[in-house]
Nucleic acid binder design. Structure first.
Lengths: 212, 212
DNA sequence: TAGATTGTTAATCGATTAACAATC
DNA sequence: TAGATTGTTAATCGATTAACAATC
């Protein structure tokens, strides 16, 4: 399925965007598209589109372009969105609940199978199809369920101790909303960080330096 | 204050991270630090630290290093975190409320001064120090308040119409949690996008391609 | 002064863009 | 076939790293 020889992160991070645009075109029943047209819609160069796609295979056809639905499916497979990786949520605060309620995990390659909290007052609260559970039950839960990834929606100072437990339980993949640097301590992990405050500061900088 | 000649986005996006680490060191009462040591803590190269900082000025001293508190303040000023830009939140759903409650806007260069919703059931609900307001009052609100930025926490399909109003009201800076491409339509805007689902798909890819 | 460490230039590396032969 | 458009190589551009003279 692939010419895989270590694809650069620049390319990988563009894949979800291709997937989104192709999904939209597919919904609009567009059958085929050329790299030039797709590039125009996405506001990138046609060269980049062709280079990116060719990291994974020759999905197009000379003189014709790309089949939208086929290319969409290819990228879906490349991203592995059919895997339904089993994830647990750590922290049912503002962000944890928003993430759990708002995102369509199924469509994004995941299944949310548990939600853990330290705050007693929240135990038993329903959260979508889940129930907020005492964090102390983490070990017993993981003994009876395969868990592929953990979503960390807790403050930085609480991460160290819980991470130690998660790591001991064999969890190596993390979606991290905290500022704790996971890979620094555990180098054999796969981590995607979401640093909203960094993003907001960047906006501040750019507002501040508008017209320069 | 600066050697400003269009700093690259790569450098800009690293600034908040420097700021975070320097703030931590400052809290730990570390007086001075060399580029080598800072680089080690941040897991980057000393060259990059020095190159990055020198985009904005010579903050260090040969043979000594950098004063932590001074450098922190410099970066704070470069980011413009003292500006208290006035922002309004559009959409008081899961994400909007999480963002409003969870982030310390003051420390990030902003002041959240309003929150607008279309769902009648939510009007009047308190949200931190704010109250959820009918979106129809947007125009009258902006007539009596300076608004520097809008935070869009609404689904893609609702963005187009509200954006038209926000733009007409003179708002040019956006923190965008939707998948609507703002700059495509309004090229004179400053936009930072947060695409959580793209991020999660990237995690899926990386989990899928672990050990390759 | 000698040692340390910056600021800055030069070298390297990687990513993006351009060009075009291959081919549908 | 002629036209269109890919896949891919080569050229360019930008970002990162290395090196070192300047200097505290």
């Amino acid at each position: 399925m692939s010419k895989n020889e270590s694809i650069s992160m620049s390319v990988i991070r563009r894949l979800p965007r291709y997937y989104r645009f192709l999904s939209e075109l597919d919904e609009q029943h567009v059958d085929r598209i050329s790299s030039t047209k797709l590039a125009a819609i996405m506001n990138v160069t046609a060269s980049q589109v062709r280079q990116d796609l060719n990291c994974f295979g020759g999905f197009g056809q000379q003189g014709y372009g790309y089949s939208v639905s086929q290319l969409r499916t290819e990228i879906r497979n490349i991203l592995g969105l059919g895997n339904q990786y089993r994830a647990i949520l750590i922290g049912a605060g503002n962000f944890g609940t928003a993430v759990a309620r708002h995102l369509d995990f199924q469509k994004l390659g995941f299944e949310l199978i548990g939600c853990f909290e330290t705050d007693k007052d929240k135990f038993g609260t329903p959260l979508g199809s889940l129930t907020v559970t005492d964090e102390e039950e983490l070990e017993s839960f993981c003994a009876s369920h395969r868990v592929d990834a953990a979503i960390l929606c807790i403050p930085k100072q609480n991460v160290e101790s819980i991470l130690e437990r998660l790591y001991r339980l064999g969890i190596r993949c993390y979606w991290n909303f905290s500022h704790y640097d996971i890979t620094a301590k555990y180098s054999d992990t796969v981590v995607e960080n979401v640093h909203l405050s960094d993003n907001l500061m960047t906006l501040c900088y750019r507002m501040n330096n508008r017209n320069i």
